[in-house]
Simulated scan of single mutants.
Amino acid sequence: MNEPLHAENPATKPVPRTLRYGQRCEVWVGSATTGSRERIFASDDLLLEAPNWTPDDSALILNGAGALWRLNMSSGSLAEVPLAGIPDLNNDHVLAPDGERIYLSANDGHIYRADIRGGNATRITAEDGYFHFLHGVSPDGRELAYVGMEAGKFTKPGRLMTMPSAGGPPASVDTGAGHCDGPEYSPDGEWIYLNTETFSSRPGHAQIARVRADGTGLDRMVHSGTVDWFPHISPDGQRASYLRFPAGTLGHPADLPVEIVTVSLDDWNAPLNTWALFGGQGTLNVNSWSPDSSRVAYAAYPVR
Rank of each mutant, 00 (worst) to 15 (best):
H132Y: 04
H132A: 06
F133A: 12
L134H: 00
G136I: 01
G136K: 03
V137P: 06
V137N: 06
D140R: 02
G141S: 11
R142E: 15
R142T: 14
E143C: 09
L144S: 06
A145S: 15
A145L: 09
A145I: 00
V147T: 15
M149G: 01
M149S: 11
E150A: 13
E150N: 05
A151V: 06
A151S: 11
A151T: 09
K153L: 08
P157A: 00
G158F: 07
G158P: 05
G158M: 13
G158L: 12
G158S: 11
L160T: 03
M161E: 12
T162Y: 05
S165L: 02
A166I: 01
A166Y: 00
G167A: 02
G167V: 00
G168A: 08
G168M: 06
P169A: 14
P169R: 06
P170I: 03
A171K: 12
S172K: 12
V173H: 13
D174H: 12
T175N: 07
T175G: 10
T175W: 05
G176C: 11
A177L: 09
G178R: 02
H179R: 08
D181V: 10
D181R: 10
D181S: 15
P183T: 05
E184G: 14
E184Q: 14
S186K: 07
S186I: 09
P187V: 11
E190R: 14
E190T: 05
W191D: 11
I192A: 04
T196W: 02
T196N: 10
E197C: 15
T198M: 10
S201Q: 12
R202V: 07
G204Q: 06
A209V: 10
V211E: 03
R212S: 03
G215K: 05
G215Q: 01
G215C: 06
T216A: 13
G217Y: 12
L218R: 05
D219Y: 06
H223Q: 07
H223K: 10
S224T: 15
G225Y: 01
P231A: 11
P231Y: 04
H232C: 13
